[in-house]
């Protein structure tokens, strides 16, 4: 029997680019956060709480978390593609990872706006 092959899924570059873009976002955020914390007059509860009440801080952090989740998704998906040969198992793992990442995202938002 002749094995027919279907090739060219027409995706892949988005994930690859996303991983690079999100990495840049995370790097910039991390540097800015460090600078902000260092610039605080004192590192005590009052200042810390005030910092996280600033909307800019919260939205920037949401952006960071979003980047982190996307970055993780592409990275973990890559690992599964490399090592998990069974398509069914891989699909199940994809779903689990997506659920976990979404949960982490929701949890992060709750933390930021919860207190």
């Amino acid at each position: 029997m002749v094995g027919r092959e279907v090739i060219g899924a027409h995706y892949g570059w988005r994930g690859w680019l996303m991983q690079r873009v999100t990495a840049v976002v995370m790097l910039v955020y991390t540097l800015l956060l460090l600078a902000t914390i260092l610039k605080l007059p004192a590192l005590d509860y009052e200042h810390w709480k005030a910092l996280w009440e600033r909307p800019l801080m919260r939205y920037a952090t949401v952006l960071f978390v979003l980047s982190l989740l996307l970055h993780a998704w592409v990275g973990v998906r890559n690992i599964f593609m490399d090592y998990i040969q069974s398509t069914g198992l891989r699909l199940v793992l994809y779903v689990l990872v997506i659920l976990a990442l979404v949960a982490y995202g929701v949890w992060a938002v709750q933390i930021l706006w919860g207190a």
Binding site: G8, A9, H10, G12, W13, M81
Partner: peptide, 14 residues
């Protein structure tokens, strides 16, 4: 490029 635009065919390269 169409032929290679695929998470496996090209993007397994790390």
């Amino acid at each position: 490029l169409d032929n290679l635009e695929d998470p496996y065919r090209l993007f397994r390269c790390h």
